[in-house]
């Protein structure tokens, strides 16, 4: 098995080779001596070399002295589940924005994410959660839409 750095190297090496393959179809320019693929190939080449160095280093370290297996211990005790849920909720929020409009989607997002991050112990905290959600949605909408002329998504239900 590779360590974290080895995997990183491998992933980026694969990515740069894949993107390098994509540059093959790029046209040459009629106006300047180099085409649209010239610079991407250089940059992707640099990325490929750097990630290859990371991969090779990791493999050699494996052959020589064993590096201490400190990585798993470091990750223990961290609440990755909460991170995944937050990303999921944020994804939902972004997906619902065009349909529900900014006000409703924001209200729902802030309403749901707060108790997920920190479950309210009593009804007073629940009330606070509700007020924060409502205030965030209305206040940002008011300030940006009316005072700062930023048109936020209105929601397809409004027929706009």
């Amino acid at each position: 098995m590779l360590s974290r750095d080895g995997v990183t190297g491998l992933v980026f090496l694969a990515l740069s080779l894949f993107l390098l393959a994509l540059t093959r179809g790029l046209p040459e320019s009629t106006m300047v001596p180099v085409g649209a693929g010239f610079y991407p190939r250089i940059v992707l080449g640099i990325m490929a070399v750097l990630s290859a160095i990371m991969l090779v280093r990791d493999l050699r370290a494996r052959g020589g002295a064993r590096a201490p297996a400190a990585a798993p211990a470091q990750g223990a005790g961290l609440n990755y589940r909460l991170v995944a849920i937050t990303f999921g909720l944020f994804g939902f929020y972004v997906a619902l924005l065009p349909g529900l409009g900014f006000r409703i989607a924001t209200f729902l997002f802030v309403l749901v994410l707060q108790p997920v991050l920190d479950p309210p112990p009593g009804w007073r905290r629940w009330a606070l959660v509700f007020v924060v959600a409502l205030a965030t949605a209305l206040f940002t909408h008011l300030v940006f839409e009316h005072y700062l002329s930023v048109l936020l998504p209105r929601g397809s239900w409004t027929g706009v």
Binding site: F90, F109, L113, Q114, P115, L117, V132, A133, T140
Partner: peptide, 10 residues
């Protein structure tokens, strides 16, 4: 943080 994080994300 449970209040700040959602607002910052918005």
């Amino acid at each position: 943080k449970s209040i700040l994080i959602p607002i910052v994300l918005v």
